Amino acid sequence: MDIKPRKDRDSRREAILDIAAELFLNEGFEATSMSTIAARVGGSKSTLYNYFKSKEEIFQAHVERYCNWQSEEMFHLLDDEGDDVSAALTRIGRRYVTNVMSDRNMRHFRLIVSAAERSPELGKAFYEAGPLRGARLLGGFLARMRDKGLIDAADPLSAAHQFIGLCQNRMLKSRLVGHSSEPTRQEVDAEVDAAVRTFVAAFAPRAAP
């Protein structure tokens, strides 16, 4: 289950999200109801409504919480920057591909895409809390590397999106449709190493004229 240490003082709310997450993943967004969640939580629907106004609100809270956990696991690796761009990108790239291409994350992604068909605002919330936030964090790192003269990136955010694309693009569609299985450590390393080499070559500082 998607259970983390309780940072929120309201452990009841967190417990609701833990249970709802499993129901959404196992039953699907459409098939999960407020009544089902309340029954699994062990309280009444009125108690559930004290915390969330709707199933959509629960789902959005779950998505935002899940994205926050993912970001914490991945992008704290940029805290120890040093001056080695390749090493930093390799660390973040390997963690990123490992997490994103995992079986559980694929289940989440399919669930979110399915829910977004009915409720586009849920898809927007996911994109802003997950992919866009991650790209902005990486873009901030790349901007600092640019300011040090270590890369030549006029638009660090665009460069961040390009690096993420290099890391995941070849595997993503194959994983989403179930054509390939969760990548091994060796497969992740090979994919990210190739992405880092391509990125560093493309954004290497230009020699002075």
Rank of each mutant, 00 (worst) to 15 (best):
F203N: 02
P183A: 05
P183D: 08
I19Q: 03
A31E: 04
G42Y: 02
V41W: 10
S102Q: 03
G130D: 01
R136L: 01
D193G: 04
A154V: 12
A129T: 11
N68P: 07
L48T: 07
S71Y: 10
D193L: 03
S174E: 13
G28R: 05
V100S: 15
P120K: 05
L166D: 05
I164W: 03
A135R: 04
G134Q: 02
S102T: 08
S181A: 13
A125W: 08
E117H: 13
R170K: 07
S174R: 15
A194F: 01
D83E: 00
D155N: 00
A208S: 10
A201R: 06
E14P: 07
G134N: 04
E73N: 09
M1K: 07
L150T: 12
A204M: 07
L137Q: 10
Y51F: 02
V97Y: 07
A207W: 11
H179E: 10
R65P: 09
L25A: 15
P5K: 10
S114V: 00
P120L: 00
M106S: 13
E121H: 08
L137E: 11
E27S: 05
G165Y: 04
R13Y: 08
A115M: 08
A208P: 03
I58N: 05
D147I: 00
R110S: 03
T36Y: 12
A207G: 14
A194K: 01
E30I: 05
A125S: 15
D152N: 12
G82H: 11
L166W: 03
R133G: 06
N105E: 08
G42E: 03
A15P: 06
V192T: 02
M171T: 10
L166A: 00
S181Y: 11
G130Q: 00
M106Q: 14
L48G: 04
R13I: 09
P205R: 14
C67S: 02
K55P: 09
P156T: 09
L17H: 02
I112S: 09
R185K: 12
M171I: 10
E14S: 06
V177W: 13
L172C: 00
A207N: 13
S11T: 15
L23N: 03
R146K: 13
A202H: 09
R170G: 06
R118D: 05
N50P: 03
V41G: 07
D83M: 04
V200Y: 08
